[in-house]
Simulated assay, not measured.
Amino acid sequence: MTVQSAAQLAFDGSSVDGSLFTTVTDFARDTPWLNTPIELWTNAGLGVFAVLMLMGWWNARHRDARSMALALAAPVAVVAAFAVAEVAKKLVAEVRPCYSLPHAYHVDACPARTDYAFPSGHSTTAFAAVAALWLLDRRLSAIAAVFAVLEGFTRVYVGAHYPHDVLGAALLALPVAYLASRLMSRLATPLVAHLRTGVLHPVLTTAPAGAHSAR
């Protein structure tokens, strides 16, 4: 089957919540002064989650080896969730709203037809960060949750995704990132405790050399 014929057989998600999608994009049409800031934020805003994970690592330097292992596992868990989402995209093969609803208002340019919509990759990254940070620092996770909801909204606002693409991303990313972070941190804690006594000591802890313990 050719790429073109596969794209023609792709799932049309407008039947799920197309009306809600157009309600949001009509709001985008009526708020042109927000279009550029939100279009910039929808991509640049992902940097917030990187900053929050860096803050988690920085704070973990004052805590035990398990906390540091969770901090180091967080970005890996996000990548794992994103990889699972990419597989799901190929399996579901939902075409972007700009193809299913071409007359709706779209801030974002329409991507290639084989750049599928479900689940939202941006939202997957955002909600995966929420789950990974939950195990490390509940306050940072709460902040990440606020920005994840905002990120999901912007993906619909710019016309890149349906609301169910965002919801699906959250339902996929939260358990995958949570479980991946728990597993990796459990495996890595003894190694982190050992590395804290070596040349990586300044990166992994602020405690004096020899004063480390894995919880």
Rank of each mutant, 00 (worst) to 15 (best):
W58F: 06
W58Y: 11
N59R: 13
A60N: 05
A60H: 06
A60Y: 04
R61Q: 10
R61H: 08
R61S: 01
H62W: 04
R63D: 09
R63L: 08
R63V: 01
D64P: 09
D64M: 03
A65T: 10
A65S: 15
A65F: 08
A65Q: 03
R66H: 11
S67C: 03
M68F: 06
M68C: 11
M68K: 10
M68N: 12
A69G: 07
L70C: 05
L70H: 05
A71K: 01
A71Y: 04
L72Q: 00
L72K: 00
L72M: 11
L72Y: 07
A73Q: 06
A73V: 01
A73R: 06
A74V: 06
P75G: 05
P75Q: 02
V76Q: 00
V76W: 01
V76I: 15
A77N: 11
A77F: 15
V78I: 14
V78E: 06
V78Q: 01
V78A: 11
V79N: 03
V79R: 07
A80W: 04
A80Y: 01
A81E: 09
F82Q: 13
A83R: 03
V84M: 02
V84E: 02
V84Q: 02
V84D: 05
V84T: 09
V84G: 09
V84W: 01
A85V: 00
A85L: 07
A85T: 05
A85P: 05
A85D: 03
A85K: 00
E86T: 12
E86W: 08
V87P: 05
K89V: 10
K89W: 06
K89Y: 08
K89S: 08
K89F: 08
K89R: 15
K89G: 09
K90S: 08
L91P: 06
L91A: 13
L91D: 08
V92L: 02
V92E: 07
V92C: 04
V92F: 00
A93Q: 09
A93N: 03
A93D: 04
A93H: 10
A93G: 09
E94H: 10
V95T: 15
V95A: 15
V95P: 03
R96V: 11
R96H: 08
R96K: 07
R96W: 08
C98Q: 12
C98R: 14
Y99Q: 12
Y99E: 11
Y99F: 15
S100P: 13
S100H: 05
S100V: 12
S100A: 15
L101Q: 15
L101I: 15
L101R: 03
L101S: 03
P102L: 02
P102G: 05
P102E: 04
P102Y: 06
H103Q: 14
A104I: 13
A104T: 14
A104D: 13
A104L: 15
A104R: 13
Y105C: 13
Y105I: 13
Y105E: 14
